[in-house]
Write a protein that binds this DNA or RNA. Structure first.
Length: 203
DNA sequence: CCCTGATTCGC
DNA sequence: GCGAATCAGG
């Protein structure tokens, strides 16, 4: 693989977005994170912006600023990328059980217009026909959740969303995920139900 | 141990 | 220019 314009574009874009070198490398494919980092430096864009966690050090060498104060726009208003996140890709067909609101007791506030409107959404039973044991297990586990943010998730962290994405009380479980699974043991238990464990139950 | 970016240096 | 190896750290 070589650094074609297109690949460099992707690199720049993702780096600007605060994506990690490994994430970028994964996206591009055919390169390691070292290659990405190397390229980043060669391109001279190793600055820290946004989600960076570097030392404050001296003044920010950013903002060359043209003498034309046209757009009084601040760096970033409020990306709020969280909204779309709570639906981690399911590697397999879950038993059609949607996470909905795992812990908090806030099923449907007042706002429902978040739906992208387009393709029909998958059926979301939203009913908690989960075995009491599994539920209890989840409750317990969520007390010890690592409370990771979207950016902190990796392939080895549980991606089960906890809380209400519309509020600050939102995070991801973050406990060690089962190998090959997107969730930790407890959450896999409620996410991937063996159909047999379900049945009708007047609520 | 998982991960992060930074740097070096042979190719 | 490239990126593996290595370093330094969270």
């Amino acid at each position: 693989m070589s650094w074609t314009d297109e690949r460099v574009e992707t690199l720049k874009k993702m780096w600007a977005e605060g994506q990690s070198a490994s994430q970028i490398a994964k996206e591009l494919g055919g390169v390691t994170r070292n290659a990405v980092i190397g390229k980043v430096h060669r391109l001279g864009l190793s600055n820290r912006v946004g989600g960076g966690k570097d030392e404050p050090e001296d003044e920010a060498p950013v903002v060359a600023a043209k003498p034309e104060p046209v757009t009084p726009r601040a760096p970033e208003p409020r990306p709020e990328p969280v909204a779309a996140a709570p639906r981690p890709a399911a590697p397999e067909r879950p038993a059609a059980v949607a996470p909905a609101a795992p812990s908090n007791v806030t099923p449907l506030p007042v706002r429902k217009a978040i739906i992208p409107a387009g393709q029909p959404l998958p059926p979301q039973p939203s009913a908690n026909e989960i075995s009491p044991e599994a539920l209890a297990s989840v409750r317990e586990v969520e007390k010890h959740a690592k409370r990771l943010t979207l950016m902190e998730l990796t392939e080895r962290t549980c991606k089960w969303p906890i809380g209400d994405p519309a509020t600050e009380d939102f995070w991801f479980c973050g406990l060690p995920s089962l190998p090959g699974k997107p969730y930790c043991e407890a959450h896999v238990g409620v996410a991937f139900q063996p159909m047999s464990a379900r049945r009708d139950r007047r609520r």
